[in-house]
């Protein structure tokens, strides 16, 4: 006896087990009837679909236990479609499983590798073809072809140039100017400082001549949140404190992380939370980031009031609002 390890032998494919329908004609007929019933249920589904489409009004709601109030039209259409399709599938599979041949068949595989002679001829053909073209020897052709192909790839890029204008300085500017009035959104009404109670929060936009046609791209940069605290609650540098008015502080509503609207304000903690990635900003400390992925505080807008007590911007934003970009000069 050698020491070679002997693997456990392959007993070969197990013997085929015949189904009842293979030998018993009554079982086969029963299976046929079952398939027919399944197809029949499918037909009923189609009828339900047609009836729902034509006769069930679109605004009819019915109460169904567990599911609650459901639109009968939608439900009828959907269930009808589901039944009509599902039972065609069930019928076909039941048919295949009970009546079609279920003997496993063995087919042979062949290695994909070609015979060595073919492989050699193939390689030779490639080599001689490449040799005949002279690509290897004629380096001038090779280099100039490479350069030409590379350059020609520029043309599709160039043709895409007119997809849009150049950004110029637009990422860095908003509609806020010195003296721009703050107006409500929605409503476009000027706001008096006295309209805001302590603890209140409001979304505002810069006043423009034609508020009916305010561009979404402007809102995307101009949106500002107004929050009123008690002045003693602030913990700000003198410069930042001077940008508030009587406890009213204004921040860009556009998240400094990825530009979502920073819309969740927790009155108790005085935190602003962005619902997209949960960056959390502390209002009392000038929207300093206290949690989450944002790397910069929300830019603060310098506000004051005019002679009649209406809120206005004293200065435009001193830094770009919204997410970072390559040209942004962040300090």
């Amino acid at each position: 006896m050698s020491n070679e390890i002997e693997a456990i032998k392959d007993p070969g494919l197990p013997a085929h087990v015949h189904r009842k329908a293979d030998s018993d004609p009554a079982a086969a007929n029963r299976a046929e009837r079952q398939v027919a019933i399944l197809f029949g249920i499918s037909a009923l589904g189609t009828v339900l679909l047609i009836v729902s489409y034509i006769f069930v009004p679109q605004d009819l709601f019915i109460f169904i236990p567990v599911m609650g109030n459901q639109n009968a039209h939608q439900l009828g259409l959907g269930l009808g479609m589901a039944i009509s399709l599902f039972f065609i599938g069930m019928g076909a599979i039941h048919w295949a499983k009970t009546l079609m041949p279920d003997t496993e068949v063995v087919a042979q595989r062949h290695e994909f590798r070609s015979p060595d002679s073919d492989r050699k001829e193939f390689v030779d053909a490639v080599k001689s073809g490449a040799g005949a073209s002279g690509l290897g020897r004629r380096s001038l052709i090779k280099k100039s072809l490479g350069a030409a192909l590379g350059l020609s790839a520029l043309s599709p890029l160039l043709l895409l140039r007119d997809l849009g204008p150049l950004p110029k300085k637009e990422f860095e500017t908003t509609s806020w100017k010195s003296g721009t009035y703050l107006v409500t959104d929605p409503g476009n009404r000027r706001i008096k400082a006295s309209d805001l109670e302590v603890g209140a929060v409001a979304q505002v936009l810069p006043e423009i001549e034609d508020p009916e046609h305010r561009a979404l791209s402007d809102i995307g940069k101009d949106a500002v949140l107004l929050i009123r605290l008690r002045p003693q609650e602030f913990n700000l540098t003198p410069a930042k404190l001077a940008m508030t008015h009587d406890g009213i502080i204004a921040f860009s509503k556009i998240c400094s992380h990825m530009g979502c609207a920073v819309a969740l304000y927790e009155q108790q903690t005085k935190h602003l939370l962005c619902p997209c990635h949960q960056s959390t900003f502390d209002v009392t400390r000038g929207a300093k980031v206290i949690f989450g992925p944002a790397a910069r505080p929300l830019p603060q807008l310098d506000i004051t009031v005019d002679g009649e007590g209406y809120l206005v911007a004293r200065e435009p934003f001193s830094e770009p609002v919204g997410p970072s970009f390559w040209e942004r000069n962040s300090q």
């Binding site: 399709l85 599902f86 065609i88 599938g89 599979i93």
Partner: peptide, 8 residues
């Protein structure tokens, strides 16, 4: 048949 089941 399985296509119809998935669709269903």
């Amino acid at each position: 048949g399985f296509f119809f089941i998935v669709f269903g």
